[in-house]
Design a protein around this nucleic acid. Sequence first.
RNA 1: GCCGGGAUGGCGGAACUGGUAGACGCACCGGACUCAAAAUCCGGCGAGCUAAUCACUCGUGAGGGUUCGAUUCCCUCUCCCGGCACCA
Length: 861
Amino acid sequence: MQERYEPSVLEPQAQAYWDGNGSFAVAEDPSRPKYYCLCMFPYPSGRLHMGHVRNYTIGDVITRYMRMQGYNVLQPMGWDAFGLPAENAAMANGVPPAKWTYDNIAYMKRQLQSLGFGIDWSREVATCRPDYYRWNQWLFLRMLEKGIAYRKTGTVNWDPVDQTVLANEQVIDGRGWRTGALVEKREIPMYYLGITKYADDLLGALNDLPGWPERVRLMQENWIGRSEGLEIEFDVEGGGTLGIYTTRPDTLLGVTYMAVAAEHPLAQRAAQGNPDLQQFIAECQRNGVTEAALETMEKRGMPLGIHAIHPISGERIPVWVANFVLMGYGTGAVMAVPAHDQRDYEFARRYGLRIHQVVQPADGSLARIDEEAYLEHGTLINSGQFDGLDFDEAFDAFAKLFEAQGRGKRRVNFRLRDWGISRQRYWGCPIPLIHCSECGVQPVPDDQLPVVLPEELVPDGSGNPLGKNAKFLECQCPKCGQPARRETDTMDTFVDSSWYYFRYASANNDRAMVDARAQYWMPVDQYIGGIEHAILHLLYSRFWTRVMRDLGLTQVEEPFANLLTQGMVLNEIYFRKPAEGRIVYYNPADVDVVLDDKGAPVGAVLRADGQPVETAGIGTMSKSKNNGVDPQSLVETYGADTARLFMMFAAPPEQSLEWSDEGVEGAFRFMKRLWRAVHQHVQAGPLEAVLDKTALSPVQRDIRRQVHEALRKITHDIGTRRTFNTAIAAVMELMNALAKFDDRSAQGRAVLQEALEIVVLGLSPVVPHACHALWHELGHAGAVIDERWPQVDADALMRDAIEVVVQVNGKLRGRVTVPASADEATVREAALADAGVLRYVDGKPIRKFVYVRGKLANVVV
RNA sequence: GCCGGGAUGGCGGAACUGGUAGACGCACCGGACUCAAAAUCCGGCGAGCUAAUCACUCGUGAGGGUUCGAUUCCCUCUCCCGGCACCA
């Protein structure tokens, strides 16, 4: 056996073995339990980053572990290949997005292979290939037929200089990222998918997802945002009505003003001939479109000089236009109750509007509405005949009254909005529609799918190049046959990622979107990806799956049975801020940390010039902060196993992970120790005896107990808890114990052989290359990848005596050793005889004796 | 602003169901080996108090509460991270 641990030699050998044997190419096999282990596919940005390495290592550990548990495991991989960065790269380098994307895919695929992930590459998909996105188009047309897809206007960011639509991230402080021009809001026609039709289903089914983290289910629940309220029509003085929706009808008598969106017809009408209003409305056009921008901006408004009539009191209620009311949400108008809504309260304070309390705490205490709005449900006051009602009674009373008058009705409302999928961009899936001057918008017939995106175009930042490409644009109307114009909008890339996991399971079928193979594999048993996808991607996928179910394409309703949301990968951020010019960021690899004599960091210097740099703490690895670590150099220096081991050891998967070069060194040291331990054992020659459990010395029995305790722990930690860090810690602890176990007797060596076999099997999902080699060295002809996960020997776990810690009044005062079978009375007797305990009991009467079996006793005096 | 999460030694983290706070690793310190260094191995390592590795006291972001017992449950607050619908 090679004495040195040489990953650069043994890793390619192990990978060649898996490739040569097709270890990870799987076929549908109804006779075996299936396990579909899926990682979120990467955007092919150019190189893998550490977040990918972390994500795919988690998936690979689970894949290999489940394989060893006897499952038929599918772990596929593909590419989320459409999107904005390819267009940005094209603009910067003049390279077509297609070429850039395909080159990146080729490079990143090699990187994935060098990390030893057990992927079935025969099922690879890339969403930018026509054989994939044709099914986006096909399903879109089915949704159009069923009325799930429909056309309406939507709001976009418009760069008036480049004459182009900007993504939210391309708007910086209200200006276009390339032109610096003030961005305008613009209403354009778009296609929407009716996800709100499924809102109740998507919400209710969250309860059927016990394998999802509670926090993700909560976020989705809040995102869908079901509310029950009342829709009420207010009459408008001088004719017409103003419709609003409220979840607080109990506060109706507290309405002191109404607010409408800038685009609301009432505001538009009032603005005619009123330059001040016109200017205010124009200013509202320049607000951002994101919810965060709307919520954090200064709340402003102007009175329209129009009044609504309160449907109960008959009072005249002034109508305002306000920048925080959006035309796209609900009716574009709200009733304002400053006494019982904080935003209305602040607005009323600012503009001197009346604050009228109509709810008081149910316990009769006083609400200080002179300080802030009172938001709780309570008892109605100042509401005439409705005084004294509670929230539910008031809700009912108002609902009945308005329903009888035909002025309003109960309505369930969702915060969730329909999904706008139109993008005015080139590098995406074409929306399969044709515009005919005679026949209007016509769907592309199925037999003409896919509408293929030309791959040679290079965007220049001024609008969608498809709009200037005659070859793409020109077509015939499928209805009348006359020349017509092809739709140039493409689909949101979330469409691509909403169903790719179905396609892996129906790979290469050019006749159908999905086939019977998907029936075998779906649903995904374990889905792994970043927490940043907790809402949008996961919700869209759940929606898309339901649409497929309703079209009879699948029987699955929930695509992902179990979800693991991994944390971010972080690193130090170092920078200098010159007196003039921009901040310069330095990569942590080029910075030395200065320590004090206790080893605590006190500063940092740039290695190149020895001068200090400032630290901005710790943050997500990113290009802009120059704090990324290249996985490639890591693999070249230490090998894939060390990279994988560090990633799994440094933090539990759901938490953020801080990069540490020293931590990587530590992982590498452990690999060398593991290698050496097996080497020493093998060098001592062949075993002289098989393990005889009945013939072991107390020390040998003790080691064996530790081995099987560690096995029990890592089985639980990998298989159930998914805390790979603690599993690895348990193996490290065991290795420390084995290092001290120097027993060359026949049984001693048999115990060590069993221990090392369990270590190698148990670590093989995490560091598969080294374990592949070590398994052979331990005398096995077969490959470790095909071995079964070892079984815990219950006999080995038996103990004769146990230690119980003893507290007096909750403070640790002693420890007693008792037989493992000892009952409470025995423990109590032993505890009260302990010298440390006696000192604190000190003859005082014992009020209580708490005993936690096998662990702890507490004497209360 | 809203929704979700987090905070434990010098650092990353452990404590799984309310029961020994600090497993494991890193850094640091001491020792062995070496001409020397690196590598490797052995030992120490929360703070205070102490002659002391005894004992004791304090200690899990801050403040309060529940409990025989709280890192864990409840309330209030601070800071950090993720999402907020056209980044993926």
